[in-house]
């Protein structure tokens, strides 16, 4: 589904990713872990198309399409969706309005008509209940005055409504208490199916107790230095990133 080959990325002339390779197949959950500043967030930002990141070498293919040639919104419509670590506030724009505009934009790209209003209302009510969000959140301005946990739940709500093929979740666990973490994890787990893939970017192992990954990758200094299954995350938790660094240097 997603194939990242030899990806080199610079930000303001500073090399962040230095030859990253990653292959994700449908049905899989991948976790990217690593110390601060390793380039974890850069990877998902580059895939989503954020400005300010220069790809100097390498390719990103999504279902055979050259992602780097696509506009930001085209990537989203193709099914690549980024859940933000720090979702922005958009004053005056209702949450439900953004959801509807996004869903209809994606439907239009698939040649489908706009979703009928009753059907949409039913869908968002159902999904907000899953995320344990009061329906009043839908009527509030996007992320405005939301707590950290509410913002994260709102990101997952968008995923549940938009049903991406590849959901990329950037530090979705940061700033969450244990109850909120459970709700967010349940939401992500409900996305799991054979046709969908999930990419988790996280600093801590604890998220992976709730969302069990098929593959764990350790990203250090712009490269994936070690890959394994979920046990790798546990080992990292126990031994720290230095252990991997020593291993890769050897």
């Amino acid at each position: 589904m997603l194939e990242v080959k030899d990806l080199h990325v610079t930000v303001e002339d500073k090399a962040i990713l230095k030859g990253l390779n990653l292959t994700i197949n449908a049905g899989e959950v991948h976790a990217i872990m690593g110390p601060n500043g390793a380039g974890k967030s850069t990877l998902s930002a580059v895939i989503a198309g954020k400005d300010g990141y220069e790809v100097t070498q390498g390719t990103i293919l999504f279902e055979g399409q050259d992602v780097l040639e696509m506009e930001i919104e085209e990537r989203a419509r193709a099914g690549l969706l980024l859940g933000f670590q720090y979702p922005v506030e958009i004053p005056g724009v209702k949450n439900i309005y953004l959801l509807k505009a996004a869903l209809n934009a994606q439907r239009a790209a698939r040649g489908e008509g706009e979703i009928p209003a009753p059907e949409f209302m039913k869908l968002v009510r159902e999904k907000s209940a899953e995320m344990k969000m009061d329906p009043s959140f839908l009527q509030r301005a996007v992320n405005e005055g939301f707590s950290g946990g509410e913002k994260k739940r709102n990101e997952i709500l968008q995923m549940l409504v938009l049903q991406p093929k590849l959901a990329m979740l950037d530090e979705i666990d940061s700033g969450l208490d244990i109850d909120a973490m459970k709700v967010v994890a349940d939401g992500v787990n409900s996305l799991r199916d054979a046709n969908r893939a999930i990419l988790l970017v996280t600093h801590y192992q604890r998220l992976l107790n709730h969302i069990e990954p098929d593959h764990v990758h350790v990203l250090v200094d712009g490269r994936i230095v070690k890959s394994g299954d979920k046990d790798l995350a546990l080992e990292l938790e126990a031994r720290g990133y230095d252990w991997v660094l020593e291993g890769s240097a050897a």
Binding site: A48, G49, L81, I90, A101, A105, Q106
Partner: peptide, 14 residues
């Protein structure tokens, strides 16, 4: 704000 624009576009909105 560029990040507001990016947020909306990254949801598929042109």
């Amino acid at each position: 704000a560029d990040d507001q624009l990016f947020y909306c576009r990254a949801r598929g909105i042109d």
